[in-house]
Write a protein that binds this DNA or RNA. Structure first.
Lengths: 191, 191, 191, 191
DNA sequence: AATGAATGAGGATTCATTCAT
DNA sequence: AATGAATGAATCCTCATTCAT
């Protein structure tokens, strides 16, 4: 059943985000999911597969949500605004994912750390790269390289998510949308 | 000897940044350092102590270098510029540290993840908090909360370090100083 | 299975009595029991738990056997006689236990050595304390303190068990019942 | 120097009696004795040699003291009385020895447990065996085998020492001399 | 004579994974 | 499909002993 697989994923995500990948055992996951240890292996090839699946499922969901909301918007700044908002909302609901991204995992699918993150950042291209380059041509943005901007943007966002988590998630993360946008868009605008 | 301890630290830092904390064994470290397994334990209480020591040593060095360069500068923007530059130069020389910070364990020194990072970010206060608040009173900066800015700034910086590492460290990281400053200072200036 | 646990207990009891607690390794026990090292830990929390279990199981069995035989006897001297006999028979069948008690660790169950032995001797109370005190009132026994007697009695018994083991267990231990009784009862009788 | 060797012996005796043979490390002993770890090996071949030396030194001292006091006494019962008294006094001063005798040590000098204890009990022969056999011939004692008596006697004594230690050594151990003698001599006397 | 840095054999324990039921 | 008993490779850490100084 798809359901049981998702249950395992959810439980594992929580445990791993709390205790770390290594300290979370298959047995703990199986117990919490009220399944046998053997059953776990009907749904996942091994522990690493589980880890990858957690990340994959989340990134897919995240990207699907962004895509869904953003594709009808044509204005670059509006797209950006919406994208950031969805991104924040997603981590607000799934903050464990953020902790997991910050975990011990130098290899994913045999890829190195570098390859994984490259792919991660690449996912942003689709919804801002083209617009961004147009804005430069228009002269509305400073003449940055796209990647300079991209990594700075994600950096600001992640800095704010990190802060939110560190401080106990006491406010709605999405509130930070405006601060992020303000700094970022004013920072990149040509004047 | 202080030397041997530092040798172990350096080797462990490299190994852990490459293979991750868990996958790096004491035996591997000892072999690379051409010492006996037991010798390791003359210099470190246990594996966790090693991990903490790597981080502590680095953060101390980093902060010492920033402090040294920055204390003679009084202008806020110049301080900021210098601070960012030193920070980038430090990670340029010690990029393994960044990977280690990113594969961090949920517990460090028995503290939770959150507590560690809180302390980490707190270290920045000393060199920009006062200046920043003055600039707001002067009206030269927008009326942000300090922490909104702080985490955004570190976010931008880390985003750029991350990118540099992901892409194989092919250019001098310090080059990114200007992009970071540009985006950040223009982003926070009142106009 | 209860069986496998008992098998491990029996094998460990033998090994520990022969080689001592420290020199007996889990691997040796597992090999002799034809189980995997990991399997051991399904039945015992750790090595110390094994040690405790050996002692507990034996003392429980011993006390159960004494209780069963003695409770129907009302005459003090007959009770005593029976108790000593069962005690000897038990160690005759389980002489390894005696060696284990004699190579005991300074801590058992986190209790100090002293606490363990206090409990051990205390177990004798139930079957002779009351009778003994009655005999004193009757004037048939000398006016000893109970504990003076108790520890002397157990001392005589253990001395005889010790001798039996030292000399290679060549005779039925229970034969010594009469010598023990003779010395002890004549030693404590008032005349 | 003989002094330093004796210092090490004394310190080791205390530590081993408290923590057990295995848990006591050479380093701990060296530290307490304020000598280097290497120095330890100038005085003892290895850890086992230390253990043996502790026991040997003590048993020699004990036997020397008994011998000295007892050799001038010719009456059997007086000898016995004196011997028991000295024995108790010795353990009163050196109660740690008793705990050490009760430790994990299935092998001593490559001898088995059995051989060691045989030798231990054998040491008693010289001062009571002859007298005892005379008393039997005289008809003053029951016709026991010597060993039956010997192990019973030592058993009573050890039982009383054990009790004294278990209960915190709150009274002078030598007080128990009378109880022991009373039970034992009345127990073995012919009437 | 004295030291203590260095060693590595040795052992307890964990846990991902398998497989018979 | 589901289980969980069984496994043993893997790894941390300890500590008796050595040896260069």
């Amino acid at each position: 059943m798809k359901d049981k697989r998702n249950l395992i994923l959810k439980i594992a995500e929580k445990l791993i985000s709390e205790k770390g990948y290594t300290k979370t055992t298959i047995e703990q996951i199986a117990n919490k999911a009220k399944i046998g240890k053997g059953t776990f292996y009907l749904y996942f090839k091994n522990k690493e597969d589980l880890f990858i699946s957690i990340i994959d499922k989340n990134l897919e969901n995240l990207m699907r949500e962004i895509r869904k909301e953003v594709e009808k918007i044509s204005d670059f700044f509006d797209r950006l605004k919406k994208g950031i908002e969805i991104y924040l909302i997603y981590f607000e609901k799934n903050y464990t994912l953020f902790k997991i991204l910050l975990q011990e995992k130098p290899f994913i699918k045999g890829q190195r750390f570098e390859t994984f993150w490259k792919g991660f950042f690449k996912k942003w291209d689709f919804f801002i790269k083209k617009g961004f380059e147009e804005q430069i041509k228009n002269g509305r943005l400073k003449d940055f390289e796209f990647e300079d901007i991209l990594y700075s943007l994600i950096g600001i966002i992640h800095g704010n998510i990190h802060r939110w988590i560190i401080n106990g998630r006491k406010y709605p993360l999405r509130e930070k949308k405006d601060v992020i946008l303000e700094i970022f868009t004013e920072g990149i605008k040509r004047r």
